[in-house]
Design a protein around this nucleic acid. Sequence first.
DNA 1: AAAAGGTTGATGCAATTGCATTAAAATAGA
DNA 2: TCTATTTTAATGCAATTGCATCAACCTTTT
Lengths: 144, 144
Amino acid sequence: MDRKPDEATEAAWIGLSRAQRVATASIEARLKAAGLPPLSWYDALWELERAGEAGLRPFELERALLFEQYNLSRLADRLEKAGLVERRAVEADRRGQMLTITPAGRDLRRRMWAVYAPAIQGAVGDRLSAGEAVTLAALLGKLV
Amino acid sequence: MDRKPDEATEAAWIGLSRAQRVATASIEARLKAAGLPPLSWYDALWELERAGEAGLRPFELERALLFEQYNLSRLADRLEKAGLVERRAVEADRRGQMLTITPAGRDLRRRMWAVYAPAIQGAVGDRLSAGEAVTLAALLGKLV
DNA sequence: AAAAGGTTGATGCAATTGCATTAAAATAGA
DNA sequence: TCTATTTTAATGCAATTGCATCAACCTTTT
């Protein structure tokens, strides 16, 4: 069922690993240089902003971000402590909670995007033609 | 010079991030399930094995693996402590050292590959046609 | 040759991640 | 119902990573 990867598969895997590291390093470096928090904060804030008033359950966010449960729990701690997110009780399930973004959270998310967007362009967009970007996105989609 | 990414660029970036996480998680999980060390150990051992007798300077390995200097220094500590790698002095530069793989290191590398190879095939090869793998590798290469 | 600057590698300390476990509540099954 | 199982979320502790800095040595400049 599995077997050995052929040469192209191995090259694709290595490329995936290296490309992601290079791109991520460059993007994270720009955020840091701008005095902004890491990408994981952005991802969480963005999901919560898209979720709107209702917010999201931690386990939903966890799946959306492909985070480990304990990592999400602690990311939520930090976001809450920074005033970017609120934890509120959910009456339907007394174990659970609802995470919602605060105005400060929306504001930070927006400021991060101002750095993040050009960083994506620099790390990815500038290196690919429009057609290549479409193809790459489609191929990567097959791996998920 | 930078500006905002278009839709395809953003999709490619998100896909890159997610595909890498999914593939890596699946591969690391298989290594762990087999009681083997993480991928970073494999990568280091493989580079050192390819380097042969002469070995590599830490800074060379650091660049080959895209590691931070302090992380490589500590990875070398662990590999050495596990008897997989040897640090030896280099006479041409008394600051430096040479890292070489030991027989135990070669053995572990080989045993890891027995798990790693099918894991790559499962996470990447099985999800792409041969042509797609070639295309993907080429596009990812443009990002590095 | 001496000083200034750059390279190589390690390390103390803080923050984050991983692992294992736990507590509490919901759901399923007898 | 009431017991067993599953789901949701947190947390103590160990390992790893990140940050800042340092020490030693090499190289270049004057």
